[in-house]
Design a protein around this nucleic acid. Structure first.
Lengths: 215, 215
DNA sequence: TTAATTTAATTAAACGTTTGTTTAATTTCA
DNA sequence: TGAAATTAAACAAACGTTTAATTAAATTAA
């Protein structure tokens, strides 16, 4: 039985691999580096996971659970107005990004590569399911007359794209916001609020039909 | 003297490397692959460029020229209104992305990695120079009373982020737009117009003060 | 509770490949 | 004839993985 509060060695390896893959990329990280980072013999990675690639797959499978079906409930929720639902979507995406930036670095880099098509497909399926749910929300807003007749797909791309562009590179983020090296974007509550605020205002102006009321 | 219309061998190597780096990443591409793709002996890469890494640096230096100072003139241009300037910025970013998607794949992946800090800095400098020019344009719009008092940095992030999110992964793009495998995003004039249109409308709604007029 | 036995975890060393690069010989072309 | 271009072969280093031996832990038998 696994001792209470003692991290399983498999988990140490996975989280070490996650950190390194996010930093240096999959092919840029050696098995020996992971092993040394996890304070483990290099042979243990094959022993536990079978291979480096299977470790990667396990890692994604293990962490991707958090992304599954987070918006499924939102579509049929009647206690929110449509624009409020969009705000929930914005907050969820921002939350998720701040909660596990390393994993998102990893995901997006993997998606931009022409490698490991099976894993890419698995990732796409999860992301796409969420995308479709959000699409439904915006479509509902248009159908109900609350929203303008916008380009739905690109509108969602604007939400996710804004967040990604700011947070997929720490250095980029610091340069854009003119912060010093001691500024850690992912630990800044202020930045998180700032992004949420900006996106909500952006979506209000873009989606809502009525005359703009300054906040 | 280089024969007319005959591509220099160095250029063949560079464009082959570009294609492969964009597809598989820098560490995921071997010198032998590049050589074979360029129909050249592997030793030629060291002979011409000194090393794989120096080839990479040369490649970036060679291609980054197109990005230098494209908005410098725009700031002091008086024949455009401020919102028209923003439209020019949108079109420029979209144009650039469609013109050389491979290089942008490569740039953004490199920026998201913790490797080759010198090259990252060089890239940042170029991108940041443009960023500052665009910032000035938006600031001008706010100061003149034409624009709302928006979050300038994040507004620009929304422009670039939208484009990147859609185009940094071909598969992602196809899935989002529900297109088949024969659809090539970078050759679709329709998509290019669609992105430009969306971003201009988004910026109009977000930036302009006056009552929204439906198009 | 011990002792014996089996299973699992861990190790250092070596495996065969592939990596980027260099060498030294040869060809090409001015 | 001489410099540049090109080649096949070899280089050491690093790669992911396997092996075989050893230690630790769990299970069973007494």
């Amino acid at each position: 039985m696994r001792p209470f509060l003692k991290m399983d060695k498999r988990e140490i390896i996975i989280s070490t691999a996650m950190k390194l893959f996010a930093q240096k990329g999959y092919e840029g990280t050696s098995v020996r580096e992971i092993a040394s980072g996890a304070d483990v013999n290099p042979a243990m990675i094959s022993y536990y996971f079978g291979s480096k690639e299977k470790l990667f797959e396990k890692l994604v499978e293990y962490k991707a659970g958090f992304l599954k079906g987070v918006f499924a409930e939102l579509v049929n929720n009647t206690s929110f107005s449509q624009i409020e639902k969009v705000h929930v979507v914005v907050d969820s995406y921002v939350d998720r990004m701040f909660h596990n930036p390393q994993f998102h670095h990893l995901l997006h880099r993997e998606l931009s590569l022409d490698r490991r098509p099976k894993m890419k497909d698995a990732i796409f399926e999860i992301l796409l399911r969420n995308f479709i749910a959000v699409k439904t929300v915006v479509q509902q807003g248009i159908d109900s007359g609350e929203f303008n007749d916008v380009d739905i797909e690109l509108t969602i791309a604007s939400i996710i794209g804004t967040i990604n562009h700011l947070l997929l590179s720490e250095t980029m983020c610091r340069k854009i916001l003119q912060k010093g090296k001691d500024f850690n974007p992912y630990q800044s509550k202020k930045l998180k609020e700032r992004i949420s605020d900006h996106l909500k205002k952006l979506m209000n102006a873009h989606l809502l039909k009525n005359i703009k009321t300054k906040k």
